[in-house]
């Protein structure tokens, strides 16, 4: 072979590497990532009357219902001095981000079959754009949460002794972990659904069930007191740990265990990596199986 022929731009090959991510290529397509994000945002609430207000309505009403059912009716305590509504809003805001990332990426291949079947770009751009556009939505919801937080803190005469903790500085880490987990699971599910459609049904109610097992509307300590035999079910659930940690950061009640956090970081990365590998393997041939 002549040396001039060695400089191939890229090679399309039948051989599959375990993890064959071309970061330079993804970087080259960064404009596409942001255009997808832009598309998601500007098209989501087109031709709706309330528009982006829907971002706020959903968590607020869910928190309200949760407060009525779980706190007023079922008497689940939310820790010393933490208003029930605020407690639920914190849980739901963080849970929503994870859930949106998971659900939004879990049908990547099926939803984009049309585009993927016609033109090539690094497929991973698609789930990444979902995570980024959900981050924006999460940001808005977080602002609402902060608004209510300030209201409760300064404008209610309650004996309200919660304060944001110094550990709040770790918030970006938590958000990153939620994105990583949601993206990881989403990529695994989206890859598997190209072959085994059953998973679509599993996602629909699985996410629902997972919410009850993720300490969204109750503190973990309460679960431990009431159902010690089942505590292991949620004790090491990464998403439950993240939500519990988030509340611990903003309210100062609940558990913020550094060991558990490190464990969560490791698990999230492993799940993300597994997701990436499976996604990578699938993207080459999914168009033949879907």
């Amino acid at each position: 072979m002549k040396t001039a022929e060695e400089h191939w731009l890229y090679v399309i090959s039948s051989k599959k590497k375990l993890l064959d991510l071309n970061f330079k290529e993804i970087w080259n397509y960064r404009d596409l990532l942001f255009l997808f994000v832009k598309r998601d945002i500007i098209t989501l609430y087109k031709q709706t009357v309330l528009g982006p207000l829907w971002y706020l309505i959903q968590p607020l009403f869910t928190s309200l219902i949760f407060t009525l059912i779980f706190n007023n009716l079922a008497d689940i305590p939310t820790g010393e001095g933490v208003p029930n509504f605020l407690f639920n809003l914190a849980g739901i805001t963080s849970w929503n981000y994870f859930k949106d990332c998971l659900v939004g990426t879990s049908d990547t291949f099926k939803k984009n079959e049309n585009i993927f079947g016609k033109v090539y770009f690094p497929r991973v751009i698609m789930p990444m754009s979902v995570v980024v556009s959900n981050l924006l939505k999460f940001g808005i919801q977080l602002l609402v949460f902060i608004g209510f937080y300030i209201y409760y803190l300064y404008f209610t005469g309650n004996t309200f002794n919660v304060m944001p903790q110094l550990s709040l500085l770790l918030l970006p880490l938590l958000i990153g972990l939620m994105a990583l987990l949601g993206l990881g699971f989403g990529m695994i599910i989206s890859s598997m659904t190209t072959k085994y459609r059953d998973l679509t049904f599993l996602v629909q109610f699985g996410v629902q069930l997972l919410m009850y097992g993720s300490a969204v509307m109750y503190p973990m300590s309460y679960f431990k007191d009431k159902l010690p035999n089942y505590y292991w079910l949620i004790e090491w659930s990464p998403i439950a740990i993240i939500i519990e940690s988030f509340r611990a950061m903003v309210f100062g009640v609940g558990e913020l265990d550094i060991n558990k956090l490190i464990y969560t970081i490791i698990t999230s990365f492993i799940i993300f990596l597994i997701g990436l590998i499976i996604f990578n393997k699938t993207e080459k041939s999914f168009i033949d199986t879907i």
Binding site: V11, S14, K118, V119, K284
Partner: peptide, 27 residues
Amino acid sequence: LSRVTGPTTGQIKTKGRIASLLEVGTG
């Protein structure tokens, strides 16, 4: 060639970007 699906055997080497006109209106 346009990398929508992978080959079962063999390989394709290219020195340039490949784009196709059959993707009219994709996305």
